[in-house]
Amino acid sequence: MILDHLLEEVENQLVKYYCIVSEDCRYDIVVIHSERFFGKAMVVSIQNSRMVLLSHHDIADEDYWAEKLDIKSSDVTEFRNFLHLVLDKYQLTEQF
């Protein structure tokens, strides 16, 4: 099998680690702000090793991110508030 190397770039990224605790659950989350991904941040759940790309506008669609990040239904509202704070803080703008 032949692999073609299409791109290699180095970028300084802002990476933030968060540990969030609710009544029933703990969430260890990494938020990576990048110049890539059309202005969206990578939000990674350390517990289940899954990630989603989120912009401020994507937060309202919890069907998109809650299951992937393994957020319990009882914690979705508070987690949505957390995401608003984290993503608003860095004023990410979409390119398209």
Rank of each mutant, 00 (worst) to 15 (best):
M1L: 08
M1G: 12
D4Q: 08
D4W: 01
D4L: 08
D4A: 06
L6R: 06
L6S: 05
L7W: 05
L7M: 11
L7T: 09
E8H: 07
E9H: 02
V10E: 11
V10W: 03
V10A: 04
E11W: 03
E11K: 10
N12E: 13
N12T: 10
Q13L: 15
Q13K: 15
V15D: 09
V15S: 10
K16N: 12
K16Q: 10
K16T: 06
Y17W: 05
Y17A: 08
C19K: 15
C19D: 12
C19T: 14
C19M: 12
I20P: 00
I20H: 06
I20K: 13
V21K: 15
D24N: 15
D24M: 11
C25Q: 10
C25M: 08
C25L: 01
R26E: 14
D28P: 00
I29H: 00
I29G: 02
I29K: 01
V30D: 07
V31W: 00
V31F: 04
I32R: 12
S34L: 07
S34V: 07
R36A: 09
R36K: 14
F37E: 09
F37M: 05
F38E: 14
G39W: 06
G39A: 11
G39V: 10
K40A: 06
K40L: 00
K40G: 02
A41C: 11
A41F: 06
A41G: 09
A41I: 10
M42Y: 05
M42C: 14
V44Q: 09
S45I: 06
S45Y: 06
S45K: 06
I46K: 13
I46P: 01
I46M: 13
I46D: 12
Q47G: 01
Q47A: 09
N48P: 04
S49G: 07
R50S: 11
M51Q: 06
V52M: 08
V52Y: 07
L53G: 05
L53D: 03
L53H: 08
L53A: 10
L54I: 12
L54P: 11
S55L: 02
S55G: 13
H56A: 02
H56C: 02
H57F: 07
D58I: 01
D58W: 02
I59G: 01
A60H: 09
A60T: 13
A60V: 14
D61P: 00
E62Q: 15
D63Y: 13
D63N: 15
D63I: 07
D63P: 01
W65L: 04
W65Q: 03
W65N: 01
A66M: 11
A66S: 15
K68E: 12
K68A: 12
K68M: 11
L69R: 04
D70W: 06
I71M: 10
I71Q: 03
I71W: 03
K72D: 13
K72P: 00
S73Q: 07
D75A: 06
V76D: 04
V76G: 04
V76Q: 08
T77Y: 13
F79S: 00
R80K: 14
R80I: 02
R80P: 00
H84N: 12
L85I: 05
L85S: 09
V86Y: 01
V86S: 01
V86L: 03
L87R: 04
D88N: 14
D88R: 11
K89F: 10
Y90I: 09
Y90H: 15
Q91T: 06
Q91R: 13
Q91G: 12
Q91H: 12
L92S: 03
T93A: 02
T93D: 02
T93I: 03
E94L: 07
E94C: 03
E94I: 07
Q95V: 08
F96E: 15
F96W: 14
